[in-house]
């Protein structure tokens, strides 16, 4: 499945728009990572634990979005966006959404 955040896909023509697909996950951080983060708040630098957590969570949101698109019989998702919201203290919702479409090879009119 092709996933892009542009409105069109180069080299392909959008044949049918199937509708909005979305995927979300809510993740909480754990105390172990907080201790490392406290130290980094003193000396500065990357909080690797949080980076990993967010990377993994975002990937999962995208996967859920792709699963939904697959159910609709789509072969691509266009115009993908991400947003986050703070649900509770120490937790965040990562949300990915896009438009599921079917495509056919062909020149893309711009």
């Amino acid at each position: 499945m092709l996933v892009v955040n542009t409105e069109t896909i180069p080299g392909h023509e959008i044949t049918k728009v199937l509708g909005l697909v979305q995927g979300n996950t809510i993740r909480a951080k754990h105390v172990g990572r907080d201790i490392a983060a406290e130290l980094k708040n003193l000396i500065g630098g990357e909080l690797t634990g949080y980076t990993e957590l967010l990377t993994e969570a975002r990937r999962q949101a995208v996967e859920r979005m792709m699963a939904q698109a697959e159910q609709l019989g789509a072969d691509a998702i266009v115009n993908v966006r991400f947003t986050t919201s703070a649900v509770a203290a120490g937790a965040a919702e990562l949300y990915a959404y896009g438009t599921a479409v079917t495509i056919a090879p062909g020149s893309q009119a711009l």
């Binding site: 996933v3 892009v4 983060a37 500065g44 990357e46 967010l54 990377t55």
Partner: peptide, 14 residues
Amino acid sequence: PQMVMGQVVIATDY
């Protein structure tokens, strides 16, 4: 064509 991502969590010092 494919989607790519990059992310970082970074803190400043005391």
